[in-house]
């Protein structure tokens, strides 16, 4: 079999073209050499990261980011189930939510990618208001909340989340993302978030940094 690193280009092309047959053909080679876990770490994760970065540069479309994330998530679940193992990192409690509205695409992309990277996180769904979010986070002892929004009013509601967390004395980091934050670089600071991320890779790097600080 080819070395795993050399499969990256072929795997990337296959998932961007949604060529599931080719994805399975590549995976069969990996299975034969019993390198499934290395395939996750050396091929799937870096390819997904590269696709996220290419979207930032305008080289791939959002629909391709979403579909490739889904294919990778399915493949990893298949691998882990087959090997009866887990590649989840030791992590602190993290939740992800679409605040205030029902535009869930951004959340779904980040959720899939972070799970692929090995993060375990709770999905709080969509259309959640500030009070419900803070109450759930308190109950689940959440330390990091990822908030995805599409509309400006939803972005402005992050300020209420911050205030409610403060009132309850909860030490929770807020990581935000979504269109309004891309159109105004200062908005995440103005609404009291601790950081913003424009891709899953960026979100993962920030979470890893915070995990060190919060441990």
């Amino acid at each position: 079999m080819k070395r795993l690193g050399s499969l990256r280009d072929e795997f990337e092309t296959s998932i961007l073209e949604l060529n599931r047959l080719n994805v399975m053909r590549i995976f069969e080679q990996v299975q034969e050499s019993k390198e499934e876990i290395n395939f996750v770490n050396d091929v799937i994760v870096p390819v997904l990261e590269k696709i996220g970065q290419d979207w930032e540069k305008g080289d791939v479309a959002l629909s391709q980011v979403y579909m490739s994330g889904r294919i990778c998530e399915e493949l990893i679940e298949h691998i882990l189930k087959k090997l009866s193992t887990s590649h989840t990192k030791d992590t602190i409690p993290i939740a992800i939510v679409t605040l205030n509205d029902f535009h869930t695409l951004g959340k779904t992309i980040i959720y899939s990618a972070l799970r692929t990277y090995g993060f375990d996180l709770l999905d709080y769904g969509s259309g959640i208001d500030e009070d419900t979010l803070v109450n759930k986070a308190e109950k689940d002892k959440i330390r990091i909340i990822l908030i995805s929004v599409l509309m400006l009013p939803s972005a402005l509601k992050v300020k209420n989340v911050r205030e409610r967390l403060k009132m309850k004395g909860l030490d929770v980091k807020l990581l935000v993302g979504g269109a309004p934050f891309r159109f105004d670089d200062n908005l995440w600071k103005n609404v009291g978030a601790d950081a913003m991320a424009t891709s899953a890779k960026e979100a993962a790097d920030i979470i890893l940094k915070w995990m060190g600080e919060l441990a």
Partner: peptide, 16 residues
């Protein structure tokens, strides 16, 4: 369809 069925479901429909 972004509103009719949600963006993520719509992308799947479009491709699959």
């Amino acid at each position: 369809p972004i509103m009719q069925m949600g963006f993520d479901k719509y992308i799947q429909l479009l491709y699959e």
